[in-house]
Design a protein around this nucleic acid. Structure first.
Lengths: 154, 154
DNA sequence: GGCTGAAGATAAGCCACGTTATCATAACCG
DNA sequence: CGGTTATGATAACGTGGCTTATCTTCAGCC
């Protein structure tokens, strides 16, 4: 087994672990005939029922077109309903339907299972340190992204 | 700006930061007419010239078909050369060509820039703790993935 | 009121990634 | 030696992400 070279690089290790989580979640979702992206839609809608597609896209930090296609499939399966907005004929309002309940329960179970599996044996101090470091990195990178965008716009 | 809900969840924070890194790297690669996936191929080949596509796929932890398609494009741009293996007519041996040199330099610059940006102001102790935690999580998740696979096979 | 611009949704087209199926070739083994 | 299995590469097809363009509808403003 030609293992990865020594991951002395924090960013590489970070993206590695994240991909592992994505892959495992994908696999679990597919075992239930769904995809991770579809799970994300359902989980968000549970917290914010009645969103428009654009609002949902912003929450998920993807583009509206991506949400639109995912909603196509979920609506076809009866898990989501597109209702016309009474005040704005341009947009849909998204609502969960009872058919989504089973999937939502499975999402919760998966999240608990992954968190438990990933952090097994991890001292609380280390977990806290990791979260602090990740939070700092996120802030740094977001600041960098904005200044990049500003530079490009100028 | 409808920001994410409090990311008290380590896994969510982790995937968020990783996505941020991926997005920024993608943007930078595209600014040079390439993609992040193509960069990964070139960086690996620099360390291991002469790999087969299958070996490269294992190093990158993706499927061989994915590597094959990426190599198609890189070969079309003259950055990679597919040479027939003298002993096994089934497989190609991948070799970098001089045309890849500029891209490799840009990859190095991008990696340095991202690491510096992400960890700016991060105490060394926190960085080390984050790496230790991530490494433990990777090990845990890999073990879980294997036992899952074994269970599915049985 | 009517024009102009902004905003929500979607289409088209590209890239990346996966699963499954094929094909050619190697490798093994009776 | 010949048949079976394993392996490297690829094709076909689906999902999901992006950018750019289009269409409809809304909102503002003269």
């Amino acid at each position: 087994m030609p293992n990865s070279p020594p991951p002395d690089d924090l960013l590489i290790l970070l993206t590695d672990v994240a991909r592992l989580v994505r892959t495992l979640a994908d696999r679990r979702a597919r075992a239930h005939g769904m995809t991770r992206a579809q799970w994300m839609i359902l989980a968000r809608l549970r917290r914010h029922d009645g969103l428009t597609q654009r609002e949902l896209a912003e929450l998920l930090e993807v583009e509206p077109i991506t949400v639109g296609r995912l909603v196509d499939r979920l609506a076809a399966r009866g898990m989501i309903e597109r209702r016309a907005d009474p005040a704005d004929r341009r947009c849909w309002r998204l609502h969960l339907r009872p058919e989504a309940a089973l999937a939502l329960a499975e999402i919760d179970a998966a999240r608990r299972a992954f968190d438990a599996a990933a952090t097994r044996g991890l001292p609380e101090a280390q977990r806290a340190a990791a979260m602090a470091a990740l939070l700092a990195m996120k802030t740094n990178l977001l600041a960098g992204a904005e200044s990049d965008a500003a530079g490009a716009a100028a």
